[in-house]
Nucleic acid binder design. Structure first.
Lengths: 326, 326
DNA sequence: CTGAAAGCGCTAACAA
DNA sequence: TTGTTAGCGCTTTCAG
């Protein structure tokens, strides 16, 4: 052990923890010993003795397709990146609603959206573990959250389409069990309501973010006697699928039908037409979530953090003024 | 504490660890207490006292685009899933080549491919930590690995195209710094060599798995005086981009040019033509990696595990017998 | 089958 | 500034 290599014991701890109260000479000796012995402190002992835990849990729902969504990946990337720079261990946990994370194993927990697992959040909170929820404005829970303003996102999409002159605007929603999906639809409807622009029932097609669901939806939409001139898809993936189907039908985007997506993911850039979309700051949101949680862990008592990040319109080629000649 | 709720101390530990040497009565009492107090054992203390660590590290290179690849996601999914069912904590670590994982924080480590971080592997091995490498046949290291047989994959692609009658076969490679990319190219060339089917230098375009690189490559290929009749892309993403560009040029897939991909990812299913591809069992590989590592952690001494999994041809619509009329 | 007691490797007072 | 000394909450002999 480094201790006998030199002359001390608690001093080693002090050096490791970078405490100022160590003179140069001893510090140097210890550092030499550490390097020489390739010593790595035992985190379990550190955590046990100090009662601190420099690792955070990431709890993510494991439903099918989740991990192939742009959404999940950006969250993982952002959180992973922040943990790396903050030197936090990231304990990654795929949840199914049961099988909770071990609350003693982490210093704090980030829930990437909550669907089936409200109970887990409540449990963690009741145990006094710092928690942070991503992308769910859980105002009814005593928890911090940081979310994209999805309602605003829906409004932005509707506003853009409406301003372009569209009056027959349909939407293919995301999974309405997710708050994001519900809110986007809400913002969309609300805005159009306010503008006295009626959205018939069959213009609102329930999707679940998947290409499959979008495929079904767009076929229904195209079969309508009164076809919409514009479509708001709650995800880029769906938008891209919708565009594909429209083209197969012989119609054109944006000339015949305008399509706007949501996410600003990779599907925007590749394909026949660049996808106009509503961008959400996913990576940034995830990073910030870690930073906020981190400070919450360090300062036992902090104010409730409830942040909302605005999405942004990204204009490419898939939307146009509607064709009057029709 | 559960202990005073009943009458014991080490017995609680025995119950928690499911040791047989506890009589029914006491066991019941302890379990009642645990449930009542919502007691969760402190993992740090457990790990410290037992010297065991039921968590495994996942080290993944963090280069750009990595996390949007089908590859990375399947690995993460597979590992996450296996950890969940085996009740292992998964410590996720994005590496940049430095900043190693804390070897004392985990019971074993899975390296998802190794590119810049051979040193990390060597370090971990030298410390006696069970390690498992995914998708890199690191025969020169004293480590277990499990990999897809990428060379065979290259052969399979070449064989299919060749058997269809193609003789002018080009390839867009993956990142040749990855073993997978190099091996696929190798198998491809080797097979064609054996068949005395010459592959001119400019039929071998270096890509890096990205759509961007594929875009550049296919443009070069199409500009050739002697255009290939078939193309082997080292990833589906690239294949899909290639097909897109070919269509834009006014040519057709597979009528004018056959395209085969690699992965069997989501890009296969959506698009104008179903993509014929070489499927690799990524999820299964990742799961198995965890299982093997797990047993290696438990039984201190185990045989070297060096497994190779065969990829599989998946035929859809993007390949055809070459057009003789040309 | 069960309790007592000695640590696991470290941090954190407390003296010196 | 430094060493000494208790524990952190558990597992694990070792008696009983």
């Amino acid at each position: 052990m480094a201790r006998r290599a030199k002359v001390s014991i608690a001093t080693v701890s002090r050096v490791i923890n970078n405490l100022p109260s160590v003179n140069q000479e001893n510090r140097a000796k210890v550092e030499e010993a550490i390097a020489h012995l390739k010593f790595i402190p035992n985190v379990n002992a550190q955590r046990l003795a100090s009662g601190q835990n420099n690792s955070i849990g990431l709890v993510m729902p494991g439903y099918p397709g989740m991990f192939h969504s742009f959404y999940a990946i950006e969250i993982i990337r952002g959180i992973g990146h922040a943990c790396e720079t903050l030197h936090l261990d990231l304990v990654f946990h795929i949840t199914n609603g049961f099988n909770p994370i071990n609350y003693n194993a982490v210093g704090g927990i980030i829930f990437a959206d909550i669907i089936e697992n409200r109970k887990q959040v409540e449990e963690a909170v009741s145990r006094g573990i710092p928690c942070m929820i991503i992308n769910n404005q859980a105002d009814d829970l005593e928890v911090d959250y940081i979310a994209v303003d999805n309602r605003l996102g829906g409004e932005i999409a509707a506003d853009y389409l409406f301003s372009l002159g569209h009056r027959k605007i349909a939407t293919v929603t995301g999974n309405l069990n997710t708050q994001a999906g519900a809110l986007r639809l809400d913002g969309f409807k609300q805005y159009l309501d306010k503008k006295k622009c009626e959205v018939p029932e069959d213009y609102i097609c329930k999707g679940d973010y998947s290409r499959r669901s979008a495929h079904l939806a767009i076929e229904k939409l195209l079969a309508l006697k009164e076809r919409p001139t514009a479509i708001f898809a709650a995800s880029d993936e769906m938008a891209s699928e919708i565009i594909g189907v429209i083209f197969e039908t012989g119609l054109k985007v944006p000339e015949d039908i305008s399509v706007i997506g949501f996410d600003d993911g990779p599907s925007c850039l590749f394909g026949t037409v660049g996808l106009t979309t509503v961008k959400q700051p996913l990576f940034e949101m995830a990073e910030k979530a870690v930073r906020l949680l981190y400070t919450a862990i360090q300062n036992k008592e902090t104010d409730r953090q409830r942040l909302t990040l605005p999405p942004q319109l990204v204009i490419r080629e898939s939307c146009l003024t509607p064709n009057r000649s029709k």
